[in-house]
């Protein structure tokens, strides 16, 4: 009986897992939300270390920077025409009305994360000061974009 239960659970995981991600993959709003959640988590890790609430390690520093960099390079692809509303999105209409302005903000984000990647090298920024110097400019780009392109609900 226990084996049957385990089998069912495993089956549910195998079946359930892909179904969710397939749904998300076809839904730009869900994807961009997931990407931004990963940005938020990376900001929480990096910010927590900068504030001294989490002990700094170079590996954790690099993880935060690399998540940000992956998001910066992909995020802009999930705002196609037709995804302006629905799914509780907090994307502002300005994203579609001012494509060039939004692209400029994304470029700032990618430029900051690219610089941070370069500064972190193979093992991540060596100490907290090096991490702050690399990660600080990345965090600054959050509000610069959120000022014009994100709506609070």
């Amino acid at each position: 009986m226990r084996k049957v239960m385990l089998g069912l659970v495993a089956g549910a995981v195998v079946l359930g897992g892909p179904v969710v991600s397939v749904q998300a993959a076809g839904d730009p709003i869900a994807v961009r939300k997931a990407v931004m959640q990963s940005v938020g988590a990376a900001a929480g890790l990096g910010g927590g270390m900068m504030k001294g609430e989490i002990a700094y390690t170079p590996a954790a520093g690099k993880a935060a920077i690399a998540s940000m960099n992956a998001a910066a390079l992909s995020y802009g692809d999930f705002f196609p025409e037709g995804s302006e509303s629905g799914g509780d999105t907090t994307a502002a209409a300005a994203i579609w009305e001012d494509r060039a302005g939004f692209a400029q903000e994304l470029a700032k984000f990618a430029s900051a994360t690219g610089g941070a990647m370069q500064a972190s090298g193979k093992d991540g920024p060596a100490d907290l000061d090096a991490f702050k110097a690399a990660f600080g400019p990345v965090l600054q780009t959050c509000k610069s974009c959120h000022e014009g392109f994100r709506v609070k609900r």
Binding site: A43, G44, S144
Partner: peptide, 23 residues
């Protein structure tokens, strides 16, 4: 106080909209 200083909420969302200029 940290939000007003840095622009980050406790869960590291950032300040947005008109509040950016205020912050």
């Amino acid at each position: 106080a940290y939000y007003l200083e840095s622009g980050f909420t406790p869960d590291y969302d950032s300040v947005g909209g008109e509040m950016v200029a205020v912050q």
